[in-house]
C-alpha cells in the first residue's frame, strides 16, 4: 500500500531514537552493573558480581527496596479504593455532569508534579494548614510531627498524584460495559449489588489491573515525593540510586539496583498484561 521509501522514512527515525536513547543507555547500565569502583574513584572495567552481592548483603539496600515496594503497594491500594468508586460514580451516575467531572479529575494532571508535592508540604508541616487548624480547634496541643517527613506523607502524596492514573483505565473499562448487560442482569432478578459483583466488577477487571499497575510502577520509581516529604524514614530506592550516581559516585552499584528495579517492573507489566488479556472479552 505504501512505497518502500515512505515506510523507511516513517520507521527509521523512531527506531533510531529508541536505539540511541533507550537501548544504548540500558546496555551501558547493564555493563556498569558488573563493573566496580577503585579506591581512587575510577571505574574499573573488570567483570564481577560484587555489586549484586553487596546489594543482598547490606540491609540498607534490600530493605529500602522492600520498603519502597511496600509504599508502592499501599499507594496502589489507596488509589484503587479512591479511583474505582470515583470512576464508577462518574460512569454510571454523573448524568449530564459527566464531562465536567471528568475534566475535574484530569485537570490536576496539568499542574506540575513538583507543585503538587510541595503543596502537601505546606499542608502537613509543623506550621502547616493541618496542624494549625487542629491546634486552633484545640484538638491537639502541639503539632503532630508524624504528618510530614514520614512514609505516611509519601504514601499520601503519591496516592494524590497517581489516583488519576488509576482512575482513567478503570473509567474507560466501565464506559465500555454495554448498558444492556446491566439491564439484562436486573431483568433476570439480580439486585443492584448482585449486578455490581457479578457483571460490572468482573468486566472492569482489565481496567483495575491497568490502573493498579500504573500506580505501583510509577510510585516504585518515584524519588521526588520521598525527597521532599519523606524524611529519613521515608527514603525510597530511587533516592538511593540518585545518591549512588551522584554524591557517592558509585555508578556500578547504582546500575545494579536500577537493573533489579527494571526486572521487577518489567515482570510486573508482563504478568499484568497476561491477566488483562485473560479478563477481556471484547
Amino acid at each position: 500500500m505504501f512505497s518502500r521509501g515512505y515506510k523507511t522514512v516513517v520507521t527509521v527515525p523512531p527506531l533510531a531514537w529508541v536505539a540511541v536513547f533507550l537501548l544504548v543507555p540500558y546496555l551501558l547500565m547493564f555493563c556498569y552493573s558488573f563493573w566496580s569502583v577503585s579506591s581512587s574513584q575510577t571505574i574499573v572495567h573488570s567483570w564481577n558480581l560484587n555489586n549484586y552481592q553487596e546489594l543482598l548483603a547490606k540491609p540498607v539496600y534490600w530493605e529500602t527496596l522492600l520498603r519502597s515496594m511496600w509504599i508502592a503497594a499501599r499507594v496502589m491500594l489507596f488509589s484503587l479504593l479512591l479511583g474505582y468508586p470515583l470512576a464508577y460514580l462518574l460512569s454510571f451516575y454523573a448524568g449530564v455532569r459527566k464531562d465536567l467531572l471528568y475534566q475535574m479529575v484530569i485537570i490536576p494532571l496539568w499542574v506540575s508534579y513538583l507543585v503538587r508535592a510541595y503543596a502537601w508540604k505546606t499542608i502537613l508541616g509543623a506550621d502547616g494548614v493541618l496542624n494549625t487548624s487542629l491546634q486552633y480547634l484545640h484538638l491537639t496541643s502541639h503539632p503532630m510531627d508524624f504528618l510530614l517527613y514520614s512514609p505516611f506523607a509519601v504514601v499520601l502524596t503519591l496516592t494524590h498524584i497517581y489516583t488519576p492514573f488509576t482512575f482513567l483505565p478503570i473509567y474507560a473499562a466501565l464506559e465500555h460495559i454495554p448498558r444492556n448487560l446491566i439491564e439484562a442482569s436486573h431483568d433476570l432478578g439480580a439486585s443492584p449489588s448482585q449486578t455490581f459483583w457479578k457483571v460490572i466488577f468482573p468486566l472492569s477487571i482489565p481496567g483495575v489491573l491497568a490502573g493498579a499497575t500504573f500506580a505501583f510502577v510509577l510510585s516504585l520509581g518515584d524519588f521526588l515525593a520521598p525527597l521532599l516529604l519523606g524524611g529519613p524514614s521515608g527514603i525510597m530506592i530511587s533516592n538511593v540510586v540518585v545518591s549512588l550516581f551522584g554524591a557517592a559516585y558509585n555508578w556500578p552499584l547504582g546500575a545494579a539496583i536500577s537493573l533489579c528495579m527494571l526486572v521487577i517492573v518489567v515482570s510486573l507489566l508482563f504478568f499484568s498484561e497476561k491477566l488483562e488479556k485473560k479478563w477481556s472479552f471484547s
Binding site: N180, L181, A184, S185, D187, V199, W279, F281
Partner: peptide
C-alpha cells in the same frame, strides 16, 4: 426480556 442484541454476559 430477550434483548435486541441478546445482551449475553461476555464473561
Amino acid at each position: 426480556t430477550v434483548f435486541q442484541h441478546y445482551a449475553l454476559f461476555p464473561h
